[in-house]
Amino acid sequence: MTLRQREVSTLILLALLGGGLLVAVQQLAAPRIEQQHQAAAERRLLDLLPAGSYDNHPLNQPIALPVGGLLGNPTAEHAYQARLNGQLSAVLLPVTARGYVGPIKLLVAISADGRLLSSKVLQQQETPGLGDKLERQRSPWLQGFDGKSLSDDAASWTLRSEAGEVDQIAGATVTSRAAADALQRALRFFDQQRDYLLKAQQP
């Protein structure tokens, strides 16, 4: 074998070793990367729950939900249980409203006794500066429904423009009405499907 051939052979061997090492590193890192993706997804979805209110990994045990119906979701979605010391602290439900511009997807946290704990917008296309004030970082409007339940007076769910007690987002009456209705529908779905949502995923 000539010097040139030996050099080429050495380069090929090094390339093969480098490729193999890269594959091995990727395989070793894959579980950690997946864990990081899972943690990021949990933070994005579960930041509407108070810190320390759950100690499980809700996304690991999704509960299948029907398309359409009270929740109005156009595609298959999942509910999730948040638990603390084995006890249910919240059920998270996605619900879709029909906004002024397009669909508004909300995530709603409901306590075991059927109270609305909190809610957040996952997706929306509403008018910038008006309907997009549903976003928690833009306005506290949505938080005004925290703590409400189906047993509350109807006026506490109704906009002032419709003789109720809720101040609508200025310039976004349709968006405000759609969001309030979606929150109520989520509570009604929880009330109707309580046994399934609370017991289906218990350990």
Rank of each mutant, 00 (worst) to 15 (best):
A155C: 03
R136C: 01
D191C: 05
Y196C: 01
G102R: 11
A172P: 00
V67F: 05
T127L: 05
G99S: 03
L198R: 01
L198T: 12
L71I: 11
P103Q: 14
G102N: 15
S89N: 12
I12H: 03
A82W: 04
I33V: 14
A51I: 11
L130M: 06
R4L: 09
T158K: 12
S53C: 06
G102F: 04
A155G: 12
G99A: 06
R83I: 02
P203M: 13
A172N: 00
R185I: 12
K148R: 15
A82I: 05
V101P: 03
Q143N: 14
G147I: 06
D153N: 15
E165W: 12
R160V: 13
I104V: 15
K120S: 14
A97M: 05
A51N: 10
Q201V: 10
L187F: 10
G129C: 06
V121Q: 06
S53E: 08
F189S: 07
Q202D: 11
S118Y: 01
L150G: 08
A51T: 13
I63R: 13
G171T: 00
Q61F: 10
A180P: 11
A30G: 00
P128E: 05
P62S: 12
L159Y: 07
L197T: 03
T10V: 09
R138C: 08
L150H: 09
A112I: 09
S161D: 13
H37W: 09
L116S: 09
G86R: 09
A155K: 15
R98Y: 06
N73S: 13
A178G: 07
T173N: 01
G52S: 11
I12N: 03
L183G: 09
D195H: 13
L134W: 03
T173Q: 01
L134C: 07
L183H: 08
A40T: 09
L48H: 06
L107A: 10
K199N: 15
I63T: 13
L92E: 08
Y80V: 06
E165V: 09
E162A: 15
F190V: 13
S111M: 04
G171I: 00
K105C: 01
S118P: 02
E34D: 11
R136L: 15
M1W: 10
W157L: 10
I169M: 03
L183R: 08
I63L: 15
H57L: 14
L198F: 01
R136W: 04
A40W: 06
H37R: 15
Q27T: 00
T75H: 12
S111Q: 08
T127D: 05
A97N: 04
T173I: 02
I33E: 08
A186Q: 05
L14Y: 02
T10R: 14
V8Q: 14
G68W: 06
L122M: 10
E135I: 06
A39M: 11
A180M: 12
A97R: 04
Y54T: 07
A186G: 11
L197F: 02
L16Y: 05
N73L: 10
S53I: 06
L71W: 07
A172L: 00
D195M: 04
R160D: 01
Q193K: 11
A112Y: 07
L49Q: 04
V91Y: 03
A179V: 12
D55M: 03
Q27G: 01
D152G: 06
R4D: 11
T96D: 04
Y54K: 09
V108W: 06
